[in-house]
Design a protein around this nucleic acid. Structure first.
Lengths: 228, 228
DNA sequence: ATAAATTTAGACAGCCTTGTCTAATCCGTC
DNA sequence: GACGGATTAGACAAGGCTGTCTAAATTTAT
């Protein structure tokens, strides 16, 4: 049941490097062991830092935890907005462009290290820190979903899609893009690039069957026949 | 941070009643506090039982935990199969029947007490008990998804739907039905009946836009216009 | 009513964890 | 090379938790 205690390769140099190293290790350990199951010695060992240094930097276990969550929330949101800015507003190939967008979203925001950690911490500790995670909810889904919805609304307005409610469509787009990754997410796994692509491809195809224009300007070239 | 310690209403009578009471309380506490955060005294208090009785029944904390997970997995699977058996094979009103099915699935299997607890335990402790949750994966999604897919395949074969890959369609059906409940689930909340209905309605409409027959035998009566 | 089985409260040892303290050491800078 | 801040190992007290044990009380079956 005990985990390896070898310091994470190179001992970090400098004050800030130590801070970063602690944040990294703490995210990892809190995520793997849950708040109650994690202990400071584990984090110190994994960060290649002494226990006292952690107390010097963060005060106590709970403050450290809160710092981790805020940090992850911030970084994840930044990633999501960066990815949203790559939304295909003037698609050349709607299906291919949306698939690529869905893959970017998954790979850079959902399946990556930060995304995985934040998701797990929210699921595991969400009920114990209502205000902290309410903050995440407002800053996260509360801001990203409308942003995505706005992009879909623009795409619909430009005649590429046939959408009544862009908010619903945005949520469904994300749900479809992830539909085949749910079980993996549940168990804390990281899907392979291929699984991400598969899920995105199937999801976007279904999305376009539902919301694509029936007879677009240039006839729908990419039917459900295209190979994987 | 301490939780209420009042025994859960009536002290139970009889050996089996105590066993059940312990299982109930343990599920609740493990789910709320995580395995590491839960302690036997909490569970004993919540079950209205002495600590020693728990040890008499289950040996130790880990065995108790495993018993809870197996119990929840079994009950949830039973519920899911029971619900699958109500799948509308001969729908009178395809949209309404699928919405009702999606609502049943959510209310009876996903949002209910057992479903919520099992989901949380999988998310929280899945990585720590790989074999235990692999078992769940095989018995759960591994058996329920194909069962649902088979029903959709039958519906497609009977001419009600236009589906190439029933497995993909089944996963997407579930993903769409839950699309608007994700954030609530993440934070451990329980959606209201109305939220469940909304999500199912929107999800099924999108599903039918994607997979419904364009010109079915009797013309599509229920377009995307129907009120909530 | 009596006997057997179960449950109970409480005490207990052993262990782990948090957070503090100290004295020695490291590191970059002047 | 000497200084000052940061870091380190290690010891430490206080407290929490698990799992065991006991003797008494309670329940159930006979």
């Amino acid at each position: 049941m005990k985990h390896d205690v070898s310091p994470d390769s190179i001992p970090p140099r400098g004050h800030e490097a130590k801070r970063a190293s602690i944040m990294d290790a703490a995210g990892e350990v809190f995520c793997r062991e849950s708040f109650a199951g994690a202990n400071i010695d584990m984090i110190a060992a994994e960060a290649g830092v002494s226990r006292q240094t952690i107390y010097n930097h963060h005060g106590d276990k709970e403050k450290l935890f809160v710092a981790i969550v805020r940090d992850l929330t911030e970084r994840c949101n930044a990633g999501i907005f960066a990815t949203i800015s790559t939304f295909p507003d003037q698609p050349k190939d709607l299906e291919a462009d949306l698939i690529a967008f869905a893959v970017r979203m998954n790979r850079n925001c959902i399946c990556n290290r930060d995304g995985k950690f934040l998701r797990k911490l929210i699921q595991t500790e969400g009920e114990r820190y209502p205000e902290l995670f309410a903050e995440w909810r407002e800053q996260g889904p509360g801001r990203t979903w409308p942003a995505i919805a706005a992009r879909f609304a623009r795409l619909a307005h430009a005649g590429f899609l046939d959408i009544e409610d862009p908010d619903v469509a945005a949520r469904q787009f994300l749900a479809l893009a992830n539909a085949e990754l749910q079980t993996t997410f549940m168990l804390g796994g990281t899907p392979t690039d291929d699984e991400v692509l598969q899920s995105a491809t199937h999801g976007v195809r279904t999305f376009l069957r539902a919301f694509g224009k029936r007879q677009p300007a240039d006839a729908q070239k990419h039917s459900a026949l295209a190979g994987a």
